[in-house]
Design a protein around this nucleic acid. Structure first.
Lengths: 332, 332
DNA sequence: TCACTCATTGCAACCGGTTGCAATCGTGAC
DNA sequence: GTCACGATTGCAACCGGTTGCAATGAGTGA
């Protein structure tokens, strides 16, 4: 049923090689042959099979887009940008949902089956062991929104979470808040740990009188809300909270509002991400902006570069964050 | 570098066919051979190539997951459920972003190149011409969240948007609202048209004194907010609004709030979808619930059935919606 | 007009599996 | 021990392209 190279070759009266070369960038074909082939192909409605091509060239133009964050609206924007960026470069994203996968080997097998040219991890919560497993299986891999260490084992693109923690600390201290709290995402996520470390570090030598730390079970509204409710029930009320992420912040805000507390009058909140929703005026969250489009472009470029030069050294590409002033922190 | 059938065959001391059959469900292999092959495969770390297999069987187990809705948070949930549902059945989603694509033929080519077994459209705004183009190209296709007509040309899974409009009408009239408004999504989207038609139909013979209709430029917060602002600026204030969708409603609520109007005291709002966010207590939107998991399961099942029986009649699978009572409509 | 280049072309092998067919094997019945 | 039959196995062709290599042909300079 489907039209193949052979059909086109017969119709055009040339060999299969000629047809193949017509559709291969930079191959040697005379204008005359090319014209014949193109006409025949158009008449027949021929589309080359990427699979067959992949089999001989070893390149599928398939990129595994791996994530475990399907509950944080920010990731819809992330998927939008990734899919467009990849498509624009002639690559196709094979979406892999690792939400409840714990075994990297299973994912490795899945991606190997489809011979993806490379893997881009888009997740702030997937353990680094996944990135390493992919790399060990010989796949070019870039972990976007992942943890940066000074000795990266795989490519990482994102922000310096430790620095973001410091930034949050400086911002809160600068507004005169003295009794602070860190309300992080999952304790096991490296992003959480780094943000906390930076936050505490930034608070050293400052006039702060107390810091409590606690963790929500996920980067999600309900989790943030539940954790804030727990804190309030236990009488642990800070003057200002650095929340691990915007959705978490919004959940926390909702709990504060329920408890009859005014923001920023009674309590201050600062988030992280600057998702679209943070700017909605019924939320109006002061937050730390993460340059998502830049991160995604860099991740794609790095993935492509690694596919072309597989043995390049693991690299970290980090982008700066900045505070976006809105209405959940008292003014300077 | 990568391990192939041949390597395993040599190591196990059997033919390539034997290895192939070991990995093929229901093929004839003796337990002894199978054991030898499995041991060799394990030692070598062999993973069969889905591409090569696809080339001979004609089945890629790839499903084109096509969408143009990357700005409505509800679709993150949709992608989550689709990817999991497909993965659980051994299928892989090839994500295609058609956000600014207007030519169905380009998409057809892209999907044909990868020989996807089928296409699932997950979009409420993609014109039906795309589904038809895919079908005409011989691909099994299911349009989820698409428009249902009494004479469907392609498979459709979703809700009866007309009935939802009627439901909204009944609900608003039942609460005693008399001056109503429809604030729809993009005027060109079939979902918008159907909801409007049902809404108006449901209002016939009712004691309603006036209905205005208007359209937001997209199913998005900003669009809903802007449109409501425009309506208020023009002095067109209704007692209650049926908004085309939850994000639109949330945008509209934000504009109402800015204008100093109390909800549901001064104005009532009912949305559609019942996305997670609608339940957040700082939003607390009364809305019409759409059974998304059921729709997605049905879309996947229908896609699989169509792959197995390509010439089945186009079919519509519709699920009922219901009103979820929250805080943006006055009580009965 | 002839030898020599270089671009173009086709042949055939190969990418990594699958599968129809025929040969071989093992088993049970007689 | 012999025969028949079904289960197992290997051979070889095929899926739809790609590509090294050698042959062909056109064009050039002398």
């Amino acid at each position: 049923m489907p039209i193949t190279l052979k059909d086109v070759a017969e119709r055009a009266g040339v060999s299969r090689s000629a047809v193949s070369r017509t559709f291969t960038e930079g191959a040697s074909v005379s204008p005359k042959t090319r014209a014949k082939v193109e006409r025949a192909a158009a008449q027949l409605g021929y589309t080359p099979s990427a699979l067959a091509s992949a089999l001989s060239t070893g390149r599928t133009k398939l990129i595994g887009l791996v994530s475990s964050n399907f509950h944080n609206p920010i990731f819809l924007e992330v998927f939008d940008l990734f899919t467009r960026g990849l498509q624009d470069r002639g690559l196709r994203p094979l979406l892999v949902n690792l939400s409840d996968e714990t075994d990297p080997e299973a994912s490795v097998r899945m991606l190997r089956q489809y011979s993806v040219d490379g893997v881009i991890i888009a997740s702030s919560t997937l353990p680094p062991s996944f990135a390493k497993a992919f790399r060990d299986a010989g796949m070019p891999v870039v972990h976007s929104f992942g943890r940066w260490t000074s000795a990266p084992e795989t490519h990482v693109v994102g922000i310096d979470n430790v620095e973001c923690g410091r930034l949050a600390a400086r911002t809160l201290v600068g507004r005169g808040y003295r009794k602070l709290a860190f309300l992080g995402g999952p304790e096991s996520a490296s992003s959480t740990q780094d943000r906390l470390a930076g936050f505490l570090e930034g608070l050293e030598m400052s006039p702060v009188t107390g810091v409590t730390t606690s963790f929500a079970s996920a980067y999600a509204f309900d989790a943030g809300r539940a954790e804030m409710q727990r804190l309030l029930a236990e009488g642990l009320r800070a003057q200002a909270y650095f929340c691990g992420d915007d959705v978490l912040s919004i959940g926390a805000l909702s709990a504060l509002q329920d408890a009859g507390l005014a923001v920023p009058g009674d309590v201050g909140v600062i988030g992280l991400n600057d998702m679209e929703m943070a700017g909605w005026n019924n939320i109006n969250l002061t937050t730390i902006h993460q340059p998502i489009p830049a991160i995604i472009e860099a991740a794609i470029e790095l993935a492509i570069a690694t596919i072309e030069t597989p043995d390049r050294l693991p690299e970290a590409r980090l982008f700066p964050c900045r505070v976006v002033e809105r209405g959940t922190l008292r003014p300077l």
